[in-house]
């Protein structure tokens, strides 16, 4: 499952010039605020349309010059938004199963919610659970559709140290089991170094690969 993204997107201050390729690994995108990190994820998910270029995942073309972009619904991209964006009027169960209406809970969702320790919360509303529980619910929701690419926007930024460690371990375990490309945006170099196989830095819309050894300095 290879992701190839070569596109440009005009932003108010500069152009985002993406040149990126990844396989079934965890890649962290780091960079200062406003450098184009989230826009990069949004272009992959389809919520933002690139101005030109091409995005392809496992041979499926998401966007290409002169062609209508693939609908978000058809991309099979799981997206964990910053602040999680759980539906406030739905329970944890309804949030997770929203993309699978009218079906009994699939086995992989049951296993996922067990692994993430959110089974006891299934009938609670988002305002009744903690930040770490919201993060795990949002992760389960992003994975419930069996995506072929997982995007995480600042997944651990709102968590305390202990919860962050636990969530990071869970993410790495899920990645090991599911074997899908995971792309994580973070402003924390330390977070990137501890979680990712590779680190890519974006600054003013330009992407450059960092060596893990460089990142640890």
């Amino acid at each position: 499952m290879v992701l190839k993204a070569e596109f440009t997107k005009r932003l108010p201050q500069f152009d985002l010039q993406a040149e990126f390729r990844m396989d079934r690994e965890i890649v962290a995108i780091v960079g200062p605020s406003g450098s184009g990190k989230t826009t990069f994820l949004n272009c992959l998910a389809g919520t933002v349309k690139p101005d030109s270029g091409r995005i392809e995942l496992g041979g499926r073309v998401f966007a290409e010059d002169g062609r209508k972009p693939l609908r978000i619904q058809e991309r099979r991209v799981g997206y964990l938004f910053q602040d999680y964006a759980l539906f406030p009027h739905m329970t944890v169960r309804e949030n997770i199963l929203f993309g699978l209406p009218g079906k009994p809970e699939p086995l992989h969702v049951k296993e996922l919610t067990e692994l993430l320790g959110i089974r006891p919360l299934m009938d609670k509303y988002p305002h009744e659970i903690s930040g770490g529980e919201k993060q795990r619910t949002a992760l389960a929701r992003a994975l419930a559709m069996k995506p072929e690419l997982l995007l995480l926007d600042e997944p651990f930024s709102a968590l305390d140290d202990e919860t962050r460690l636990r969530c990071r371990n869970e993410l790495m375990r899920i990645h090991r089991d599911w074997q899908i490309p995971v792309l994580m945006v973070t402003h924390s170099m330390d977070e990137a170094r501890r979680t990712a196989d590779r680190i890519v830095r974006i600054e003013k819309g330009r992407m450059a690969e960092l060596l893990i050894s460089e990142a640890s300095l």
Binding site: T47, Q73, R75, F98, A142, P147
Partner: peptide, 13 residues
């Protein structure tokens, strides 16, 4: 918030 609609789209809804 349009993010809620976008989340739902990524879920194939």
């Amino acid at each position: 918030d349009p993010r809620w609609e976008n989340v739902a789209r990524t879920m194939g809804v």
